[in-house]
Design a protein around this nucleic acid. Sequence first.
RNA 1: GCCGCAGUGGUGGAAUAGGCAGACACAAGGGACUUAAAAUCCCUCGGUAGCAAUAUCGUGCCGGUUCAAGUCCGGCCUGCGGCACCA
Length: 805
Amino acid sequence: MNEKYDYTAIEKKWQKYWDEHNTFRAGTDYSKPKFYALVEFPYPSGQGLHIGHPRPYTAMDIVSRKRRLEGYNVLFPMGWDAFGLPTENYAIKNKIHPAIVTEKNIAHFKEQLKMLGLSFDWEREVNTTDPDYYKWTQWIFLQMFKKGLAYKKEMAVNWCTSCKVVLANEEVVGGCCERCGGEVVRKVKSQWMLKITEYAQRLLDDLSEVNYLDKIKSTQVNWIGRSTGAEVDFTSTAGDILTVYTTRPDTLFGATYMVIAPEHPYIEKWADKLENLDEIKEYQEKAARKSDFDRTEMNKEKSGVMLKGVRGINPVNGKEIPIFISDYVLMSYGTGAIMAVPAHDERDHDFAELFNLPIIEVVKGKGDIDVQKEAFTDCATGVLVNSDFLNGLSVEDAKVKIKEWLEENGKGKSKVNFKLRDWVFSRQRYWGEPIPIVHCDKCGYVAVPESELPLTLPDVESYMPTDNGESPLATLDSFINTTCPHCGGPAKRETDTMPQWAGSSWYFLRYCDPKNENELASKEALDYWMPVDWYNGGMEHTTLHLLYSRFWHKFLNDIDVTTTKEPYMKRTSHGMILGEDGQKMSKSRGNVINPDDVVRDYGADTLRLYEMFIGDFEKTAPWSPSSIKGCKRFLDRVWSLQDNIIDGSEYRSQLAASFHKTIKKVSEDIESLKFNTAIAAMMSLLNEITAEGSVNRAEFRTLLILLNPFAPHMTEEMFESNFGEILNEQEWVKYDESLCVENTVEIVVQVNGKIKSRMTVSVDGNKDEILEAAMKDEKVSEAISGKSVIKQIYVPNKLVNFVAK
RNA sequence: GCCGCAGUGGUGGAAUAGGCAGACACAAGGGACUUAAAAUCCCUCGGUAGCAAUAUCGUGCCGGUUCAAGUCCGGCCUGCGGCACCA
């Protein structure tokens, strides 16, 4: 009766229908309950959509479609994170303006996304490279600048010695330039910084208010890296105070030397007292030449130089100890100086061995650890020794007592430190948001007036960064030279641009009100839509992007733009899709699957279903060209149910419990990202229906609604032709908990934990009767004959177990 | 080194208040239909022994708790992801 399932025609038909009817447009009726579903907006690369993209998009599409049927006003938007290096590099190579490349790539991406039947509200599309968008990115930067959160600082950057170009950290692979393989060294440049460290404690604390996966929370906690300890003031023989940071102030009596970072300013200060300044200078230069890679990779091999002429004095016992410079101490953490306790720190121990420095045990462990050979670092079990008034105390108690002593004697104080560092916000690149600042010799750094935003990217001849590492904008005199907004005198524009992270740090706010010309979004829209109810994205973005956007959102909350502390209520992550060979897909491996081909050969519904069925949503999964056939087969079998529909306004009794159970399972599994088992449940249901030989109208209707979020085109088509209505205007199906159970249940009868028999009993049947019946079972009585039953275990509706001896 | 996650058939994976291991698929083998192929439908499908009923072993390894362990506890091994001289 029905034609073969022509997915190409059906999918086109419904995509057109949804477009024309604005089916998925988010409503402006703010009295309805809202649901804001967010997926990470893609970078529109020249390669087009990757087969991995549909996985998270389909997942949130399923949630969104279900929520619409449940009556929510759903916001499910999409946009483009379009600034970035690949486009710029392509532009350099092919001498095409990056804006043109971007436009072309976006058109291609959009076409591919539409082909998948994703229910995005395309009216709210945003594009980070659109001046109407980045106007507000610049505006946010200016607000931060006004609050003192954006500042300029001399910073070491990655410098490729062969391309003569500044590289982003991501472009440095194994200490070499990703593009040319040349050596990368550190070079000091003046950079714009954002003071994310000022928000470190709040970024940590407020994690308790959001529902992120534990692993996501823990990477955030790790990255922020809070530690508690003390700052201790050592005096130097030069007469000044050298402050160190330590998390083990209890070991102060064991400090036998000090180490300062090679960049420590005291070297200069002490220059005329240092007898081996040449040797020290040489070491400093060597350290500066080392890339970050070398400095961290050679982590076993310590090196350093002792300062001759200046020594430190331990405040607790007045002992004079030597001071070294070494690159294992970082200028960017703590105070750039440490007290070294080789007996109780592995790094200090290595260093002490190298330089033959004394090792004094001040914490005694339970075992026979010889601190001359190995550092003893366990805080839980140690007891203080050789430490005067701390002797006999536990590590924890000693920490408290020494901190009190330091404060009473003015020699130090408790201190909390974070690993998190301020955000290097400048890039010496063309394809990014211009930083809206001018420099005036008289007034310093001055904000571009808000009325002049957006400060648009000017056209340049070449997008190549310049030889001295400046942005291509630095070659444009007409752009650079301007007047100071403050005094009217001559001034120069900032030529660095913002990093790609900028545009993505607030895009979820713009979706709430994307066409607003007067504000980044209206207060009313933000109040209604924010926070994002559910944000899904890749694990690779769970540190930086998540942290940066939480930081911006908190700042915007502080200046009353938004009303919530946190931007995202819930954050989940999906796994990557690998090639058939289990390797990451790449052109060089030849294992790339193109979504266009899959849609052509199987249809979008099958692709969607397969990507949800492929495995645990949160784990990586290899693509399997044969498994996808099983999903197509399932859809074909659902399609052919149309050949045999019988009347009926209720589920038939033999199927009723299965229907209620499946509705429950699918409804719950969608909410907990277990799409694979939701699909398996529908497959099982179909197997039961098929065994009956027919489906009735009530059953068929329920099946179509359940399947709709997964395979929206096909189910719409079948709904229209069989029920004459639009599926998207229906309600999500309901289940009755009490009808999920059958009248009878099969239970297992065990003897000593081994299954001997099975029996069918009525649900919640009488315990004694069941035990008695089980005991009489032939197999059971055989197994217990000659033994005495010492225990009977009865688990209702599950099993009976006799323990016999 | 630290943090997190995982290890189950030929394959992807099911199974969590501890209670039938292998749901649902894929692949493979056999059969039906067909001139044939594709498609579709039916059967088998963890190992070992057996014609079979059945027995027995089996969730990375070793031990423990329990009537009962993939699941809980202790100790390892392996793989993946992230961070990494952060004092």
